[in-house]
Write a protein that binds this DNA or RNA. Structure first.
Lengths: 209, 209
DNA sequence: GACAAGAGTCACCGATCGGTGACATTCTGT
DNA sequence: ACAGAATGTCACCGATCGGTGACTCTTGTC
């Protein structure tokens, strides 16, 4: 009897999953500063010794979390869901729309926001993993969109880097800072100002075909 | 005799100053995460109880530090040291040079860098103080430079906010992140790419008189 | 049914944290 | 000179941290 897989207790796979998702929960609720062995174990309703037994320590657990969790938006979402349609647009509209999609994709992910903070503030287990994901994604997306801008005299990729950096920064500080350089970060109106400014920047850098 | 002010011991003013500058030292060496009552007292070679007696607690001490320390560059330095000369330039060159001065002013201040990190990552005692300083400085400088751009159809101030945000972000992540979106943050060449991109952005937004 | 391996529980360690009360020393006003 | 305030020292508290050893209980195998 009871050949059915155990309903509840004594299941390493389930316990591991509880621990991994506890990392995400804590990041969302308390930020990276709240991440600790005791906190994760408490959140997962599991004894902390299992963190060491199953993962080798918090470091490795967080590493597993980084590789498992998909807080980073997919490349499809980064381009607004339809790469082919975007590619068909003339450069101006193509990149303007991409910038807007990027801002909204980043902004709408609270977990990603916290991870961005962590990534910016200190060198951690997630940093290396995240940096790799970010850079490879950036390369893929940008090369998928690059068309008709290669012979520009300007360093358009540097411009894109500037816009990406600004997006990350606004997203991060909007959690606590109400106003930056006169722009209201708590209202949609403020973010619209930023979006249009960024879209206008890429338009000014690109000819119309 | 001994009417001269005491050479060494038993001097509240000196002790307070030791504590205040210890805050700066720790921020520089260990970042905001290393700031604690014990750490500050240890750094200042002073008993921690004096932090409570003289300031009321670490919070108020940090607040005093925020108001006294001048990690934030002066408005003169933000404009490259000579406001009048800058104001005499045509808008394009004026703002391009301002952007470059700003990037370099921020980048060359390690203490400011750490404070920027702290300000971005969490709501603390310094946050409110810093936000006030930053916003009022921004208003002053921008209004001192504003001339001939008021009737632009574009939201040029939002563009400046974007550039400021990107500057802060690059400065923050350069401590740990080697590359962002293909730009090397550890080399002068990478920063030159960013500087020129930003300067080019403001140029494209401004007519030549 | 016996038994070993795996899963989970519990109690404990040393270190550090923020915070405080009690004491010793020095300075100052009269 | 003396008293009282100011300055600084020291020991201690409870809480939390990361980490570990030893135990109990469950499960699968023979």
């Amino acid at each position: 009897m009871k050949n059915v897989p155990p309903l509840v207790q004594r299941n390493r796979a389930v316990t591991e999953q509880k621990l991994i998702s506890a990392v995400g929960s804590i990041l969302m609720r308390d930020g990276h500063a709240g991440l600790g062995v005791n906190a994760v174990a408490r959140e997962a309703c599991v004894d902390k010794v299992l963190i060491y037994r199953y993962f080798g320590g918090l470091t490795q657990l967080v590493e597993r979390f980084g590789r498992t969790a998909d807080f980073w938006p997919s490349e499809d979402e980064l381009v607004g869901g339809d790469l082919a349609r975007l590619q068909a647009l003339p450069p101006k509209a193509r990149y303007a729309e991409f910038v807007r999609s990027y801002v909204r994709a980043i902004r709408s992910r609270p977990l990603l926001r916290e991870v961005l903070v962590w990534d910016a503030v200190e060198k951690s287990e997630l940093t290396a993993v995240l940096d790799d994901i970010r850079e490879s994604t950036a390369v893929n997306v940008i090369s998928a969109l690059a068309d008709g801008v290669t012979d520009s005299p300007d360093d358009f990729f540097a411009v894109l880097a500037v816009l990406g950096a600004a997006t990350h920064y606004f997203t991060i500080i909007a959690r606590n800072t109400p106003v930056f350089a006169g722009v209201d970060l708590q209202s949609e109106e403020g973010w619209n100002r930023l979006e249009t400014a960024m879209m206008r920047i890429v338009e000014l850098f690109l000819s119309d075909e």
